[in-house]
Design a protein around this nucleic acid. Structure first.
Length: 303
DNA sequence: AGGTCGGCCTGGCAGC
DNA sequence: TGCTGCCAGGCCGACC
């Protein structure tokens, strides 16, 4: 499923192909894709516009168009963007024809999405785009502001499992199920650990694990478990380098013990319970140095 | 108000 | 073999 590394891979491949071209034709075949707009509405808004830049924020692919118009595309679970496909790919939801650039031919694009969870939202103006994104997304993991302090700040007081917090896009943008498992393994943290219980050293390890897992995913041009494809239909290779994800029963690369599959936050979760020891109690109080500002303890309700 | 769960959606596959 | 039904999960809204 496209997470930050997969969307970034698409962006890097697609940007040099589409930037500077005009959307000559667009057909939105799935009425759910542009909601709340109707296909005809989004088609007429996009037709004839020049694509200035292709960006990314979290798992959103951002088509920045002339006239300060922005298309925030989300691939959700099974979306792909294919360039110059042979014929009509299966499950095509959007077709585009991009105009010529100096000395080059036109470019055909197909947005495919078997499960039809993907969306394309239209935003008029940079302010509207920023508002839209910031309401949904926390810091970018590669932003210099993503420090162990930030991590502990957004986790402070939380009793939900650390994995649930990593998957919460409003706290940290771009991490999904694959990279959460990989990052927690790298940091030697059990996914069920209460998010607010991390020590400074553990928060530092988690920050490094998140960045290392995402960078490894980008370097391998994403993970193709089933549906994710590059814009030329080629698969990514990160699925061959998973440390724990989808490796239930296989030996841990560090200790050799069998990796287990459990369910955390309703998601299939892979863990080495030797390297990532399971927490003893549900809630663990953070150590005193974990409470910057000395936030007073919340009074207990009378029984 | 934090935390959990169901719905969206369809291909793939286990089980009968 | 062919059918049924369950599972996968990012995100959002409903509910406790």
């Amino acid at each position: 499923m496209p997470e930050l590394p997969e969307v970034e891979t698409i962006r890097r491949q697609l940007a040099p192909l589409v930037e500077g071209r005009r959307i000559e034709q667009i057909e939105v075949l799935d009425p759910r894709w542009p909601r709340p707009l109707a296909p005809a509405e989004i088609e007429s808004a996009l037709r004839g516009r020049r694509i200035e830049t292709l960006g990314r924020r979290g798992k959103y692919l951002l088509w920045n168009l002339e006239g300060d118009l922005h298309l925030a595309q989300h691939l959700r679970m099974t979306g792909s963007v294919l360039a110059q496909p042979d014929g009509e790919p299966a499950h095509t939801r959007v077709r585009m024809l991009l105009g010529r650039r100096a000395g080059e031919g036109k470019v055909r694009l197909a947005i495919t999405d078997p499960r039809r969870f993907g969306t394309g939202e239209l935003l008029l103006g940079t302010d509207a785009l920023t508002l839209f994104l910031d309401a949904r997304l926390g810091l970018e993991p590669f932003d210099e502001g993503f420090t162990w302090e930030y991590l502990r700040l957004v986790m402070r007081g939380r009793t939900a499992p650390i994995k649930a917090m990593l998957l919460d896009q409003r706290r940290l943008a771009g991490v999904g199920n694959i990279y959460a498992d990989e990052a927690l393994f790298m940091a030697r943290l059990h996914p069920l650990r209460a998010a607010g219980s991390l020590t400074r050293a553990q928060a530092e390890a988690l920050r490094e694990g998140v960045i290392a897992a995402l960078q490894a995913g980008i370097d391998a041009r994403g993970a193709s478990i089933d549906d994710f494809r590059h814009i030329d239909g080629v698969r990514g290779s990160f699925q061959d380098r998973f440390l724990v994800h989808l490796r239930a029963g296989e030996p841990c690369v560090r200790c050799g013990r069998a990796i287990r599959k459990i369910v955390v936050a309703g998601r299939g979760t892979y863990v080495c319970e030797h390297c990532q020891p399971r927490p003893r109690r549900r809630v663990r109080q953070p150590p005193p140095e974990a409470r910057p500002g000395g936030r007073p303890a919340r009074p207990r309700a009378a029984p």
